[in-house]
Nucleic acid binder design. Structure first.
Lengths: 151, 151
DNA sequence: GGTGAAAATTGTGGAAT
DNA sequence: ATTCCACAATTTTCACC
């Protein structure tokens, strides 16, 4: 399938929905210069093609009881073990994102917890279920996060 | 202000909107067991209080022309310089998130670019504008990302 | 693909409890 | 703070280009 570049109109739609995921079709139609129906159809197609993976509310970690964010680097205890770490970690809800990376470590996780004790417990669970050693970098503050990319 | 814990009803609403940012008020009302108006009012209040910071479409980096993700650690060249890095970096649109962290480095950035050349150029700009040295970890794949937290 | 319009559904504000 | 109600706006489908 067509990889890489998005058609300019789809690009415009996607940009608007990245900036405001609740923008109405009416609003989108005006901004991109199409009829409401046309926009509607394009958005559905973008969703089906997986260009748009979904919509989400961006939340304030402090105010929802998860004030502690951390980045955790994973290094396998047994380098010969099969690489099924994502599957092993998927069920741990505190893990927001999981990246497979090039470099010294194998994976980097972004996690959110309620307290230092919660982090300690989370690390114990991660090491146990995935048989890895961990290196944790605590986030002190978040100047900005989840900004929408410029297409 | 009330910090930390959210009222159970607000918690339920926030959880639903994290899972699907386009859920309708009607839908939300059914799921949390309130009238549409009550939900409507609560959502507006959550937005005003900043618990909900906004809504966004989650996009597939590959399909929007930004297939290369990286984590960049920043270390100040001059440790005595004033700490205004976030301000200096804010205008660089490739930087999706900026975390101030405890540990060897001062900041960790999550960035998305179109190509290795794009990454090279981005690194040059970051070093130039922020007077930092950088350490880059390239993301090979993303098993999962941006999952909504369990409240 | 796109348009325009009808029908169904949802959003929004106000008065009352 | 919640519910009910009425009106405005949006979503969704469909026939036609």
């Amino acid at each position: 399938m067509s990889n890489g570049v998005l058609e300019p109109l789809d690009q415009a739609i996607v940009r608007e929905l990245a900036a405001d995921g609740r923008r109405s079709f009416t609003d989108l139609a005006e901004r991109v210069g199409l009829s409401v129906s046309a926009v509607h159809q394009r958005v559905r197609r973008l969703e089906q093609r997986g260009v748009i993976r979904g919509y989400t509310a961006r939340l304030d970690g402090e105010q929802i009881g998860l004030p502690l964010t951390a980045l955790i680097s994973l290094t396998p205890n047994d380098p010969a073990a099969p690489d099924d770490y994502p599957q092993r970690l998927e069920h741990i809800s505190e893990i927001e994102s999981c990246y497979s990376v090039a470099g010294d470590e194998s994976y980097i996780l972004l996690v959110r917890v309620g307290s230092p004790l919660g982090l300690e417990d989370l690390l114990r669970r991660i090491r146990e279920v995935a048989k890895v050693s961990t290196r944790t970098t605590v986030v002190l503050s978040t100047p900005f996060e989840g900004r929408s990319p410029t297409l």
